[in-house]
């Protein structure tokens, strides 16, 4: 859990933190690899939603360099398998995600990120 698909969809939402608040930076993390079902149609449909740079950076940080720096025009099976692995099979189990802008720390424990804000951080 905290798969990279999720990491790609979460931004810092502390009060006033509206720019440079994505992607969150992983810190002191432990990862696990777990198999997921491959569904090429889902992946094709999901590509337009991905912030590509954030995804490839995060993957690289977790030791996976299989993705090209731009999504290819031809979405062949080989590419989709790699994307599948990066989006859905790498799980960050422990550690934290830190906002690059305001430094807010969102801790991850047993695979569940705590995205709650403190009272003084709500807008």
């Amino acid at each position: 859990m905290v798969r990279l698909i999720t990491h790609n969809l979460l931004a810092c939402h502390a009060k006033g933190c509206t720019s440079n608040n994505f992607p969150l930076q992983f810190k002191d993390i432990q990862i696990e690899l777990r198999e997921a079902e491959f569904n090429p149609d889902f992946l094709r449909g999901f590509i337009p939603r991905i912030e590509w740079g954030a995804l490839t950076d995060a993957a690289r940080q977790l030791g996976d360099t299989s993705l090209p720096s731009e999504p290819p025009d031809m979405l062949d099976d080989d590419f989709l398998q790699k994307l599948h692995h990066v989006l859905l099979e790498i799980h960050v189990e422990e550690g934290a995600m830190v906002c690059p802008n305001c430094g807010h720390v969102y801790p991850i424990s047993n695979g569940i990120p705590n995205m709650l804000l403190a009272e003084h951080e709500i807008g």
């Binding site: 859990m1 698909i5 999720t6 931004a11 079902e37 912030e51 859905l88 995205m115 709650l116």
Partner: peptide
């Protein structure tokens, strides 16, 4: 494997990017 992720947050203060 189909439970993509579980997150703790208040839906009225949610971190969804889009």
């Amino acid at each position: 494997p189909r439970i993509i992720d579980l997150c703790t947050f208040d839906i009225t203060r949610n971190p969804w990017r889009c």
